[in-house]
């Protein structure tokens, strides 16, 4: 294990899907890194490619080009058999808790399965560990005998997290893990996740569409638009430092609880353009207030502004 290397390194990853005779560019030239014990947030509108990227990182979707390394191992090029063993290092938590569970499997069995499958431990040992795991995510041990439909959404999501960490993964991917939950439950899940990431020194890729929430649980945030990362910066200072017009527009669209009712909403008009067909120029050009002729002809590259801030824009705000 090289300690100088970041935990997760995504380099120039592209994903293209054939659509009839055209090509859909779901993810284009994305490069990101994630350190141990850190969370990276991915934010963007629906259809911007954040889930596609997550699936590629999880290894469930082959990449078109580029490379993804975890601890220095480029697992996208591993043979199938080796990859099956390697896969334990990356675990995922999904958005809809109920549909990611088998309705006929008791919670206990569900929690044992990864350990039995990967480490061939006896079921009894795995069951004891399951109880500990439940305790870790703040649920009573008797839940092992329950069926998924007997639990609430927030409780199920905690079980999903417990299962994900059962086999000590190095990377946890949360794809809209709190999207379907109430705000109060959302905060409980956030606390559990943040504690786990710190305690186990794992990396966490946190995908969401709520910028305010994602920034509260992550150290770094990457903003995606139409398959590209347009801005990458520290979550803590996101509000002050962001410079991309799209990030600004996202911020403007958030309705604060303490907002002024008289104030006009600074929402941008229009909707994202279709990702089918080759892009000419900046993907955001059609909705951008700062658009120039340069923006329409060439694509800005993600370049560092300072050590913790990268930006892809010709005319930042």
């Amino acid at each position: 294990m090289q300690s100088s290397e970041p935990l997760l390194k995504i380099t120039d990853v592209c994903k293209e899907f054939p659509v009839k005779k055209q090509t859909l560019y779901a993810v284009s030239d994305v490069s990101l890194t994630l350190e141990r014990g850190e969370s990276l947030g991915l934010v963007g509108e629906s259809g911007c490619g954040k889930s596609t990227l997550a699936k590629m990182v999880a290894g469930s979707l082959p990449i078109t080009s580029g490379s993804i390394t975890l601890d220095g191992v480029d697992y996208t090029k591993l043979p199938k058999r080796e990859f099956r063993q390697f896969r334990r290092n990356i675990q995922m938590v999904f958005q809809d808790p109920l549909s990611s569970f088998s309705p006929r499997m008791r919670i206990g069995k569900y929690l044992c399965e990864p350990r039995v499958n990967y480490d061939h431990v006896p079921v009894e040992t795995a069951m004891d560990e399951a109880n500990e795991l439940l305790e870790k995510v703040g649920l009573p041990a008797e839940f092992t005998d329950r069926y998924p439909h007997e639990l609430s959404g927030g409780q199920l999501q905690r079980v999903a997290i417990a299962r994900a960490i059962a086999i000590d993964p190095k990377l946890l991917i949360c794809d809209e893990a709190t999207g379907a939950l109430d705000v109060s439950i959302q905060n409980q899940i956030a606390k559990i996740l943040v504690d786990l990431v710190e305690e186990r020194n794992i990396g966490c890729l946190f995908i969401g569409h709520d910028l305010a929430f994602v920034r509260s649980v992550t150290q770094k945030t990457a903003i995606m638009y139409l398959g590209r990362v347009v801005e990458y910066l520290s979550s803590e200072t996101l509000e002050q430092e962001c410079a991309h017009p799209y990030t600004k527009a996202l911020l403007g669209s958030i309705l604060d609880v303490y907002c002024d009712q008289e104030e006009e909403i600074a929402a941008m008009s229009g909707e994202p353009v279709s990702p089918v067909g080759k892009q000419e120029g900046c993907p955001f050009a059609k909705r951008c207030p700062n658009c120039t002729t340069l923006c329409k002809s060439s694509i800005p590259k993600l370049e560092p502004v300072n050590a913790y801030h990268k930006l892809a824009c010709f005319n930042p705000m």
Binding site: S39, V183, S184, Q186, N187, A190, K191, L193, V194, V197, E198, D210, L211, A212, F213, R215, S216, V217, T218, Q219, S235, E236, E239, L251, I254, D256, V257, Y258
Partner: peptide, 17 residues
């Protein structure tokens, strides 16, 4: 109070360090 407190806000409480 709890409900309003729980809503994520820009510049609000952060869980991560």
């Amino acid at each position: 109070k709890d409900l309003i407190e729980a809503v994520p806000k820009m510049g609000g409480k952060r869980f991560a360090k």
